[in-house]
Design a protein around this nucleic acid. Structure first.
Lengths: 348, 348
DNA sequence: TTGAAAGCGTTACCAA
DNA sequence: TTGGTAACGCTTTCAA
């Protein structure tokens, strides 16, 4: 028995092979020039309203869409932003990427992901970035790539670094005021009466770490507190946080620990309570940095310094969306201010 | 005073404006045809080794790279895979995306992100997907998009759904065996002597939820256990998990709760211990699904059913990398098996 | 405002 | 194996 045919809106010529309709074909069907079709789809182009109407209407009927690739070639503009990432394990990054890509989409820009895996051949991985002619590059990789490699990879394309600051490089950098944030944590510890404090670094050579470390230690000294110990966790992970915390309380007595980011702090927190036999905040206070979603979970309730993700996204999108060239010609270092979020790990 | 010029390896003609060298220019400089240049960069093309050598060497010197956009246009192949996502809050997805995009990169494919925000105009958001001529589409969005919308959005392009199964649609689906996994959880509960069990749904209408729910409930009945209650958390989030857990233990007595995913389970776990006054696993056992990184954290130590992310990625990349057309012509539903991971929330 | 035609930088076919 | 040349599907002058 013949199966019923459920003719799916085959308004026009069948697709045969799956080649899409072109502007030229559409133009011929309508008896107008191909240029007219192009203009119909170009906002602000010089075309009479009725003609545009007619073209757009028919285009919708036969489901015509301009081919973006061809457009890229002739306009030499791709509407694609390259996003260089290397760590999606730290929830801070997915959160940032999610909002960033949505904001970009809203102004017609798509995100092409370049997920750099550590250890492997970086140049090879970045070659693609150079070939795809992206309109701009946003780097969200706190680590791994040297400024030199980045310059090479972006090769004269507008680029902007998030959460990392490199001086004397022809790209803009945008970061929160790490050092002030860390100062604020130190002050908060001080106000709560903690005298002997410790600092746990993530990757010690990263600029975020250096700034947070500097801000914290400096303020600690200014306030006359004692920096009992410092640990270098070696990476920004939960497990590293656990290890560092246990190491810090071993022998020495400490009132408060500031971890370079929330993921470390959360690991440390669990370890202190479960293996270290400490009560937090009664025996020891804990603070982190970033304000990831988990920090607000009732179980952790972690005091932290909140990164202004929305502001970062807003500024980045603004820069990338408009005067991309300015990113090249006048690279600037933009500092956005976060805010101290006091929660239970430093209070009662 | 004049600033010193730091001539940055200007091996060849200065870039003036930042227009890249073209194959034609390169060819002229070398006195060969432009076709030769193209062939030099095409593996397996018919070109004499010495000529290729000469071209590649010179290309490297002047830093020439073939323009991928032009290549896309003439080959009508973009080497770009569209990745449709809608939730990066659940750590399962970033973990998947990270491995997926890296695996794709390894075979020369880049990932173009389409981050669909719920609530807003879907068609508008997906129009870009249709215009960019991606070679294939990978959908990692458990929810939001109807099969119909997806068909429209992919319009005859090879597509593959991860973690979601839609029958009678011309795209392949790949998912773990949710129903068996849920059965395994039920059996595990049974073996540990739990009689009164509960189920917490995420989004109840999603296929993952339906399959897990069905698998669990069915096995529970077969084993003669009692399904004390079911809750619909309404979303796959930590907070929803908390709420659902507290609701479930209110009044009724329950031995074990199976949450539709880990994020819910973790929220539930914290709530049970901290607000519900329950000991886990002594008073009540808890299990989740997915095996996200947090499930293995010592603090949670959550029993769960592990999704075979690596297998999923392997199969998807295989499909997408080779016979993309087969995805269209012979869509299949692929089930990959995960494994039960017994941890402390169901044991001692 | 409209149409014709010249690019955009490749790939691919056809001769040589 | 090589070079010449026609696509690829759009944008953008240049005339009309």
């Amino acid at each position: 028995m013949a199966k019923e045919i459920s003719k799916p809106q085959a308004t026009s010529a069948d697709t045969g092979g799956r080649r899409a309709t072109t502007a030229r074909e559409l133009a011929k069907m309508l008896g107008v020039s191909q240029s007219a079709v192009s203009r119909a789809f170009t906002p602000g182009a010089s075309i009479a309203a009725p003609l545009r109407e007619r073209i757009l209407k028919f285009a919708a009927e036969i489901d015509y869409q301009p081919n973006a690739i061809a457009s890229m070639l002739s306009k030499s503009r791709t509407n694609i932003i390259g996003i260089v990432v290397s760590d999606m394990r730290n929830p801070f990054y997915p959160a940032l990427i999610e909002r960033l890509s949505r904001a970009l989409q809203r102004i017609g820009l798509q995100s092409l992901l370049f997920n750099i895996a550590p250890g492997t051949n970086l140049e090879e991985q970045l070659t693609a970035l150079r070939r795809y002619n992206v309109d701009a590059v946003i780097v969200i990789s706190a680590t791994i790539l040297s400024g030199q490699t980045l310059s090479w990879a972006t090769e004269g394309r507008p680029a902007i670094l998030i959460n990392r600051v490199i001086e004397d490089i022809n790209m803009s950098c945008i970061a929160c005021n790490n050092s002030e944030g860390a100062s604020a944590i130190a002050e908060h510890f001080y106000e709560r009466g903690h005298k002997r404090v410790a600092y746990v670094a993530g990757l010690s050579h990263t600029t975020t770490n250096r700034e947070r470390q500097y801000g914290f230690i400096t303020r600690v000294a200014e306030l006359g507190m004692t920096l009992t110990s410092q640990a270098d966790a070696g990476e920004y992970s939960y497990e590293a946080g656990r290890r560092a915390a246990l190491e810090i309380i071993k022998g020495k007595s400490v009132d408060a620990i500031f971890f370079a980011n929330d993921l470390l702090a959360i690991g440390g927190l669990d370890a202190l309570r479960e293996e270290g036999g400490c009560r937090v905040p009664e025996d020891i206070a804990v603070a982190g940095f970033d304000d990831i979603a988990m920090a607000a979970w009732p179980h952790y309730n972690l005091t932290t310094f909140s990164q202004p993700i929305d502001d970062i996204v807003r500024v980045v999108v603004e820069k990338v969306g408009s005067n991309t060239m300015q990113l090249l010609e006048q690279p600037e270092i933009i500092r956005l201010s976060g805010e101290l979020v006091k929660r239970k790990t430093t209070g009662l």
